[in-house]
């Protein structure tokens, strides 16, 4: 057996740059709290909502022409309830509605050449601020990706 490293091929490396974004939400208002460029290899892009035939919330990184470069499905990033846990294992976990939904969520997306902006979209009937499904997904927030990279208020 020969040395493993010396005969390995030199194919193109996957992208190692990413952007972390932190958002705050209150009701149906979503705003960017911070963003930062980091070195990070991410899982591959998700398929579209149409392809997956689902209702939910997702992020899209798009170029200046609006072409989607990356998509990440987000599972209930802005919940309107809270999960309550039993003290004894095996007993029921339950959910309770929250009076004033608010909180934060974070996204990690690849830092791609040609990226222009990031949009968070939803076609979930339960998501605050989402219009009727027949009119297509609602864009909840958009972030310009062409500027900066350090944390921004």
């Amino acid at each position: 057996m020969s040395d493993v490293g010396s005969a390995d091929t030199r194919d193109e490396e996957p992208p190692r740059r990413a952007v972390r974004l932190v958002f705050a939400y209150e009701g149906d208002e979503v705003r960017l709290l911070s963003r930062a460029r980091i070195e990070k290899v991410l899982p591959q892009s998700d398929q579209s909502a149409d392809a997956l035939n689902f209702r939910g919330t997702w992020s899209e990184v798009r170029d200046a022409d609006g072409v989607t470069l990356d998509r990440r499905v987000l599972v209930d990033p802005m919940p309107r309830d809270a999960e309550v846990f039993p003290e004894q294992l095996g007993e029921e976990i339950s959910r309770e509605p929250v009076e004033r939904p608010s909180g934060v969520f974070t996204l990690l997306v690849p830092d791609l050449d040609g990226a222009d902006h990031l949009a968070v979209l939803s076609n979930s009937p339960g998501q605050a601020g989402v219009r009727a499904a027949e009119s297509g997904p609602t864009e909840l927030v958009r972030v310009d990706l062409t500027t900066g990279g350090e944390a921004q208020p």
Binding site: T9, R10, D11
Partner: peptide
């Protein structure tokens, strides 16, 4: 398999491609 990329032991995202010549 004569060559492989990425090399053995490399940490990669699940679903990544391993090229085998």
């Amino acid at each position: 398999v004569w060559q492989q990329s990425p090399k053995a032991g490399a940490i990669v995202a699940s679903g990544s491609t391993v090229t085998m010549r």
